[in-house]
């Protein structure tokens, strides 16, 4: 029994990692766009890097969510560890991805090819990058707003109403994501942003696949970028959800505690929670969609072999 109890935390990351690896493998096999050996090997390498980055994220997630008691005792503010957990997971995910991008083979052979177009992080990320940035903006905006509107302790939301006899009613509701938890979250967000940017730059600078049409290399590069952005956006979405939902709940509780109606604050609380739900749902959908590889456009008829191996 003791052995089983020890194995559970060790084996618990294995199940989601194997599930992700299986999905990635099946998604890759689902669209055999080409039967080229180099392209197949490249897709397998991409799946391996994606699986390793997901494995790192799951291991970090299990450790942080398990939260040994010794860690909680050292945490400065209650809830800080929980608040930064998704972003630490995202940072680990992006960092492993960036390291994995360095393992792609260098150009070799007598004939080399490269596209005569500029690749940038913006052109590679496309709509998904804008979506992830938008989610990050929502998080920053939410943290600043809650930090400014929190009470002196930074852990609650205060609502005051003046009474006709000169007195006032003061209602405090919490937990509220003020600066004590918002500050570490902003730092974690900065680390996540840097790690993600470095991973995207590594994908942009990755050498083209040798002997494979550019459209395949381009599709694989977009798949890599979309997968990292999908994973990071999922973590950002959960952090936005936690921040905005907690803030909405605290505001709703404070409004309920005051014997006077605050219609604006009541609507604001509902709106914050509704937006939080939409963001986490959208982020989850984006992450799931990123599991499927980008399809390769139909290739034009290949040029016959030449004495130099060059296609005109």
């Amino acid at each position: 029994m003791t052995v089983i109890a020890m194995l559970v935390p060790l084996l618990s990351p294995a199940v989601p990692v194997l599930a992700i690896a299986l999905i990635l493998w099946l998604a890759t096999r689902r669209r055999p766009d080409v039967s080229d050996t180099v392209a197949d090997a490249a897709r397998r390498h991409e799946v391996l890097v994606s699986t390793l980055s997901a494995a790192a994220a799951v291991v970090i997630a299990v450790i942080l969510l398990w939260q040994p008691g010794a860690w909680l005792a050292r945490t400065v503010t209650t809830g800080t560890l929980q608040a930064i957990t998704p972003l630490v997971i995202a940072t680990a995910f992006a960092s492993v991805r960036a390291l994995g991008e360095l393992t792609w083979p260098r150009p070799h052979g007598d004939v080399r090819s490269a596209p005569l177009t500029r690749r940038t992080v913006w052109s590679l990320g496309g709509l998904r990058l804008k979506s992830a940035l938008g989610t990050g903006f929502l998080l920053v905006a939410g943290l600043i707003a809650t930090g400014v509107t929190a009470d002196a302790s930074g852990r609650g939301f205060v609502l005051q109403r003046s009474l006709g006899d000169g007195g006032s009613i003061l209602t405090t509701a919490g937990p509220y994501p003020g600066w004590p938890s918002g500050g570490p979250v902003l730092v974690a967000l900065a680390l996540t942003t840097v790690a993600t940017w470095l991973a995207l730059v590594a994908i942009v600078r990755r050498r083209p696949l040798t002997g494979v049409p550019t459209v395949h290399d381009d599709a694989l590069r977009h798949t890599s970028a979309h997968r990292i952005l999908g994973g990071v956006q999922l973590c950002l979405g959960f952090t936005v959800y936690a921040t905005w939902w907690t803030a909405g709940s605290a505001i709703a509780n404070a409004v309920d505690g005051v014997p006077s109606r605050h219609p604006v604050l009541g609507v604001l609380a509902i709106a914050l929670q509704a937006i939080a739900g939409c963001v986490v749902a959208g982020s989850t959908m984006a992450a799931l969609a990123s599991l499927w590889p980008r399809p390769v456009p139909r290739a034009e008829p290949a040029a016959p072999a030449t004495s130099t191996g060059r296609a005109a």
Binding site: V111, R112, S113, P115, L116, T117, D218, T308, R310
Partner: peptide, 11 residues
């Protein structure tokens, strides 16, 4: 998209 090819062994 335009691809560039170079043959390193070419004269």
């Amino acid at each position: 998209m335009t691809d560039l090819f170079v043959a390193l062994g070419s004269p």
